[in-house]
Design a protein around this nucleic acid. Sequence first.
DNA 1: AACTTAGCACCTAGGTGGCAATAT
DNA 2: ATATTGCCACCTAGGTGCTAAGTT
Lengths: 529, 529
Amino acid sequence: MLLGAMPDESAAALLLPTAKTRATDFSIAAIMARGAGSPQPCTRPPSVHSTSNDEQINDDHLSRLSSPGLEDGLEDDDIEVDVEICSDGAPSPRPNKIKILRESPPISDCGSEVAETDRISPDIALDRPVSKTKILCNCEELVNIECHLETKDLWDKFHDLGTEMIITKSGRRRMFPTLRVSFTGVRPEQRYAVILDIVPVDNKRYRYAYHRSSWLVAGKADPPAPCRLYTHPDSPFTGEQLRKQVVSFEKVKLTNNEMDKHGHIVLNSMHRYQPRIHLVKWKDHTGPVTDLEQEQYRSFIFPETVFTAVTAYQNQLITKLKIDSNPFAKGFRDSSRLTDFDREPMDSLFMEQHFLRNSLRLYGDPLDAENNNSGSLFSAAMMEKARAHIQMWGRAGGNPYNPSELHAMLLSGAPGQYLARTAVPLGIPTQLWSQSGVSWPNPIHGGLPPGLLGPPPPHRPQITPPPPPSSTPSSSSGSPSPTTVNSSSELRLPKALFPSSFNRFSPYTPPMSRQTSSSSISPTSRLAH
Amino acid sequence: MLLGAMPDESAAALLLPTAKTRATDFSIAAIMARGAGSPQPCTRPPSVHSTSNDEQINDDHLSRLSSPGLEDGLEDDDIEVDVEICSDGAPSPRPNKIKILRESPPISDCGSEVAETDRISPDIALDRPVSKTKILCNCEELVNIECHLETKDLWDKFHDLGTEMIITKSGRRRMFPTLRVSFTGVRPEQRYAVILDIVPVDNKRYRYAYHRSSWLVAGKADPPAPCRLYTHPDSPFTGEQLRKQVVSFEKVKLTNNEMDKHGHIVLNSMHRYQPRIHLVKWKDHTGPVTDLEQEQYRSFIFPETVFTAVTAYQNQLITKLKIDSNPFAKGFRDSSRLTDFDREPMDSLFMEQHFLRNSLRLYGDPLDAENNNSGSLFSAAMMEKARAHIQMWGRAGGNPYNPSELHAMLLSGAPGQYLARTAVPLGIPTQLWSQSGVSWPNPIHGGLPPGLLGPPPPHRPQITPPPPPSSTPSSSSGSPSPTTVNSSSELRLPKALFPSSFNRFSPYTPPMSRQTSSSSISPTSRLAH
DNA sequence: AACTTAGCACCTAGGTGGCAATAT
DNA sequence: ATATTGCCACCTAGGTGCTAAGTT
């Protein structure tokens, strides 16, 4: 029954998931097909289109990013390695000795349960329960230091969709989510600089196919911009400070202007990047750090912070998640949704837009959303009701919806959301549903097969960046972070479940929808002046 | 003729200026009387009431502030000294040896031409053309360092009226003007902390007499709050940084809450304070500076930054100047003034309020007003016209005004403003008149005697370290600004010219005035929601 | 009567995505 | 066609003085 409403591609995905050659498929059919399979937690919609689904990717190209000696052309390993790699690199500027430690201390793992699947093609079922650690180090003293990504949950949400970051010529855009890290194991008396850089993930240029909702390789990478080391403005920190406070890179800004004079980080649009955190032993009487290799440092890489630089958002779901989780974008949240269900049925076109606009609200977690203080609007009772309905939807093997509802659901790409919306008390910001760490044991959410998107060919890190440290991949397991209970893949899975037949849409709700909304304030009221 | 409209006190001031027992007198009569007398540039309305006009005050009590060994009760010297005081204090905590150097290098003078008259009673003619230096130093290496007050012009404007600073229980009020200093003579490689503290000027409590527009001694000081050293959050600075950038204390906040836990500076309301800047040689592996005497430092004191801490503004002219010069108070500027003169005459009561609200605009200098960007509204031609009228007023020995105009002028306290407003093209923000350093050679502006304030007994600062703020964002603002040419006392003189018969008034222009203003936006429009 | 407090409207400053126009 | 740019309305965040009500 569902198939009837699905595009051909989705139907194909449902029938032949493992043979699917298209990278991304968010259709309900594909989702359900996956859901019946393996327990892999999450998919990566923005994964690169690939013609081969047999390819297995690992992350060591990330590590190579910091190994200036490694050049393009080396083939990637095709197995996961659970290693920690520390470079013993002396102040010798260039090629550093790379040490691969087989015994990876789980405690110093940067990657978390989610990160472990980084860049795994969602359409390929692959069993890789062990996470990887990516640590670069040229100083023994720093070896026991741990670095924790504070905003991991939010990063995970974006990572599941394929994080995009806006870059502008003027360089006035921050990163969102913000990189926030904390450290343990530092020496209280020692002083450290905390440095961020952002290095290319591979040597490719990408483009986004709307109709496929997927990223495709568009060719070889453009000439890389000069890689800049962004030293946190509060540096140096004493170890004591680092023990107490979170280091936030909220001020860092991105630009595509190679001539930038403001010290912003320069990136190429439509390229993929990996932020890295470097903890550097502070040397007095030293100016700004310009070459990591001349410092004693240790690097931390969080795979879930990989993103694609864009000048305009490509994936509408990213847009939605940004709007719902970034307080500064609150103006784009659709207040009319609060009362949409009080209204009479509307034409399907509007419904499509409406659901598109709200499809992702389900997954926004206000606890993770930085500075998001809208949680007070939601009562515990409301949340219970919402959860109950989601569970109900999860149990539903049949189709309780009428055709028009199904159509809307397909377009929305968020069946759980859709169903919940039909039953949950109106006026509830769905973004708040997962507040206070609620996880709903929806069977459908829990049993989806890993994505079967076309796996990208092994990526080769471009090693152009100027101050790249020596490196190699390393891995260890679970994140030591006491962050939100995040073990349930159910919570994350539905995020990748969307129809593949997205069309570009205007996120602006038509004026009518707002005007008919009883509680919304007219957005055009200011036009009168 | 003018006397008829003046209060008794003002008349007395006019007739017997040097015998006047009240410190403050802004009446036109008093102003003009002063103007005809000595060439002293400026007056200090908030000067302390004193029963003796023979008392001559100097500033070395300020120096004693940093000498913990000196206690209340020492009598003040009664002559001005042109000295530089450096304490050779070794790390020994308490009583430091105080060295008085007779050869004070004028180049390292913190006080400027205006500052030299600090705390001089406006009604007492005293010839003290030599500026004073207030420098505290316990380190020879720092002796050649100069410190420059960047916001001096604005501080002067406030100082002429008697600066007040709002303090609140919550500690959410900044200082305005902001303390911004720059340094020369620092060693590029050396690192320095720049520290601010604010110490009592005397041992007195004050109250403000509205009808007199003057500050009176209300008794002995309340128990002093713990004196906190506010280390600039960007500390340490390298000498190279200090050469290039202005150190701005814009983030410092004041409170009257002795239990404050935010690290704000704690002050007593209705007490007078002197901010001090300390340049401290940075020692590594040192926590926050809690005791200056254990550091190698040099202190700089700018007498024009003295202020009275208040919980609500006492002097309406201070309120006006704040409103006109602080961008954040722009909402209280009266936009109706732009068209007031297009309207028909109104009842005198309203006119009074109107002029009261605008009396100080003349003296606001947008080049000094921090972040004030309204200057673009004003054309050069407009300014020329305005200046011409001011000069005309300056030449006017007689009284060209009719009685009602005089009344309004007296209430406004700004005759130059008033006159200019009657002739200058309407719609001109008068605050912009002095833009681009225009100085008008008004003879009346040139000859006021300096005042003589009662000298406070030496004070002993309590040095209690604050909990340093832990937030991440740091900011050092400002540019190596070549400060405005500030040599003309004429520019500042008229600021002190105000009637002493001020009554408390509501700065809000009655709704009618705004509604009849053709170009103003109704301030009550938001009440509709 | 003088002083203090808390909430407010009104600002500055700047971070959002939308969107139309432009560039490639 | 796709990608980029500049401007915009709409937000957050927080700095103003005003005001009414409270305190001493």
